[in-house]
């Protein structure tokens, strides 16, 4: 919210916005209706015992709205609250939304997940792990029922741990340069394997491995957005209605694609080597170029467009 409480313009940074600001800017103006809003005070019952403050929405905002007139269900994580974690209440809110879409075909057939999370909330780890597993199952069941689930990744916490798994379960992923996806986060790799294995303070390395440009180039994300709500909106609209049927043929094609990718890129030891193998003439320049130039580059790269999901 700006000083007057009105949302910033659609050109404000997605990375720096709060979850509520992202929703306000992404959806058609005034179209958002929240389920289980803050006034219901569905807070974590566990954080107080750790002397930690709770949030009125538990960092998970769910509801419905419209995207260029199309009805959609939406969920947005607040990455600044506890790292955007999955926990008992936040997990239940997301799960309820996806299961409702799975079970009721009168509800919108598209779900947008604005992920911004380091994974499971450690203070509620069992409930959080359970929530992630149940959400993944619900997404698969919803997709089988004809629902498209699109992940939007460009927040400060990225989409790691359970959020990375959930992103990978979706019908499609939209990512920005600032966005990151993965399972084990950089700090966790460094803690467990040592700084020589992975230096989590080396931003070029972290983004080279997990960042939006690498993910898009190797086919780990289906669309690339600039760091604005307007660009995420445009990229999401372009994907809506394009989800393939979630059937055996699609899964076999995805398996073949992933096996091919391991064959092509499995021997690379760094992002630049992967980009080179994909045919990017100057990998270093590709990391520094402006977004529109990068988008043009992606169009020419073999492997970025063969996502079968």
């Amino acid at each position: 919210m700006s000083e007057t409480g009105r949302p910033f313009g659609a050109s404000a940074s997605w990375f720096l916005s709060t979850a509520r600001e992202r929703l306000a800017k992404l959806l058609d103006a005034g179209s958002f209706t929240e389920f289980v809003p803050p006034s219901e005070r569905a807070q974590s019952p566990h954080l107080a015992s750790f002397d930690l403050p709770a949030a009125f929405d538990d960092g998970m905002i769910v509801g419905c709205g419209r995207l260029d007139g199309n009805s959609v269900l939406v969920a947005a994580q607040e990455g600044q609250f506890m790292g955007g974690t999955f926990a008992e209440v936040s997990g239940a809110k997301l799960l309820g939304l996806i299961r409702a879409a799975r079970d009721d075909e009168k509800l919108p057939r598209s779900i947008l997940l604005l992920l911004d999370s380091g994974g499971v909330r450690l203070q509620e780890a069992n409930a959080g792990e359970l929530a992630v597993a149940e959400v993944m199952r619900a997404i698969v069941e919803a997709r089988a029922a004809g629902v498209a689930v699109i992940a939007l990744v460009g927040g400060r916490a990225g989409a790691f741990g359970g959020a990375g798994l959930i992103a990978a379960t979706c019908s499609a992923i939209v990512i920005s340069e600032q966005g990151r996806t993965g399972v084990t986060g950089p700090e966790v790799i460094e803690t467990n394997k040592g700084v020589e294995e992975f230096d989590s303070r080396d931003k070029a390395l972290v983004w080279g491995v997990t960042g939006g440009r690498t993910r898009r180039l190797i086919g780990g994300a289906d669309a690339y957005a600039e760091d604005t709500a307007a660009s995420f909106r445009e990229a999401t609209l372009a994907l809506m209605g394009k989800a393939r049927p979630f059937d055996l043929a699609t899964l076999r094609a995805e398996q073949a694609r992933l096996a091919g990718r391991v064959g092509r890129l499995g021997g690379c030891d760094r992002a630049a080597a992967m980009w080179k193998a994909l045919g990017v003439a100057d990998p270093r320049a590709a990391g520094d170029m402006d977004d529109p130039v990068f988008v043009a580059l992606v169009a020419d790269v073999k492997g970025a467009g063969d996502d079968a999901r």
Binding site: M1, G5, T18, R20, A55, Q80, F81
Partner: peptide, 11 residues
């Protein structure tokens, strides 16, 4: 009703 701000360090 309205909600402003987020629960984060220093916020």
């Amino acid at each position: 009703s309205a909600i402003v701000g987020v629960v984060a360090s220093g916020n």
